[in-house]
Design a protein around this nucleic acid. Sequence first.
DNA 1: GTGCGGCTGTTCAATATTGAACAGGTTCCC
DNA 2: GGGAACCTGTTCAATATTGAACAGCCGCAC
Lengths: 217, 217
Amino acid sequence: MPSKRTLTLNARMFLKRIGSHKTSREYRNNEVIFSQGDAADAMFYVEAGNVKLTVLSKRGKKAVIAIFRQGDFFGEGCLGTPSLRMSTATAVHLSTITRVKKATIVRIIHKDPVFARLFITHLLSRVVRIEEDLLDQLFNSSEKRLARTLLLLARFGTRSKPHSAILKVSQGTLAEMIGTTRPRVSFFMNRFRKLGLIDYNGSLRVHRELLTFLLHE
Amino acid sequence: MPSKRTLTLNARMFLKRIGSHKTSREYRNNEVIFSQGDAADAMFYVEAGNVKLTVLSKRGKKAVIAIFRQGDFFGEGCLGTPSLRMSTATAVHLSTITRVKKATIVRIIHKDPVFARLFITHLLSRVVRIEEDLLDQLFNSSEKRLARTLLLLARFGTRSKPHSAILKVSQGTLAEMIGTTRPRVSFFMNRFRKLGLIDYNGSLRVHRELLTFLLHE
DNA sequence: GTGCGGCTGTTCAATATTGAACAGGTTCCC
DNA sequence: GGGAACCTGTTCAATATTGAACAGCCGCAC
């Protein structure tokens, strides 16, 4: 059942207008939804599960540039000009993904100004989010970035209950999200644990104290 | 006179549809167009000159997150939900800036599906650009980032002639664009000069060799 | 001219970050 | 059960980056 976040309110309107012009499919953990370099001819919606967007650099380094969760849209790049996927989308855990053809979206945008407005609002929120990620890189040390990433994964700063089970992400993946190395993530995770900012016995739990750590100091 | 870049083709269509619902004004060098925290109720277009978008961090660090040039739009954030400026826009050199009220844009989006589509394409290109900047931070060292920034300022990778005079930016500003310190920029600029990748006697000139440096090695 | 402010070149010690390596766990598949 | 593949904790030297500081240079206002 979708949470009550703003995005998801939009998502309902989106889906209502898309109607039956969509297909749905399950993806296993780690199954690829689309790959960097593919032709982009569809958008996607996360019905259940999670999706990560990764980019492979020329020198073989990998970066996670976004994580999408239940109620999120992704793959909007298909509406742009060259329409080649700039990143790879992979299911995290078992996930149900809805697919909407590019032509369908374009048609609705043309016929339905309310949908167009909604879509623009959605894109603006993506711009804001990516800008925040960029600023995080420009301003903060990797320790701070790790703290922020953990808080976002635990859904601090949203209206939904933050103490819920966090998405299980390996330290290696965290390193790729933050832009640092795995040993460094391991080091900071243990520091956070010793300071009582997170709990970490098998499954991860993020405490409110991590937020105050991020803001002050 | 606008260059022949794709963006500018869009810009002409934009302006045609906006028609007379706009105002125009000159800004002196370093004059502020809008400030971080202001209420956002308008979009802007660079008729002549340049604009830089800066963000001030809580700890007083400054970052340049975008530079807009003749033919570019900026300030689209006004169409989003909270409508507070997340950054400060400042004129670089004497600049002529067109202003379009938010209400005007919203009205045209609702009435003109072609405009809506154009606007979405524009936002998508912004997303792509910011994602590229983020990936640059995640993958590359500050030396590589400086090289990329210089090449972009010199308009390599566009159809317009790249050897034209580069936008004059101080090393301090470059440092804020790249996310490093000024001494570091100074150090790399001299290295590039010694390697014959740039020329640098008063005004800056970027050579094609810098591009090969960025790609290989 | 004088002085101020901005820009550049440079140094340097303190700190942060990398990347490779090794060991010990777990899970999962055959 | 064996083993492969993954995950975590940890170490360490090499390297990159910071931030403060000082000096010289220019343009410009008074």
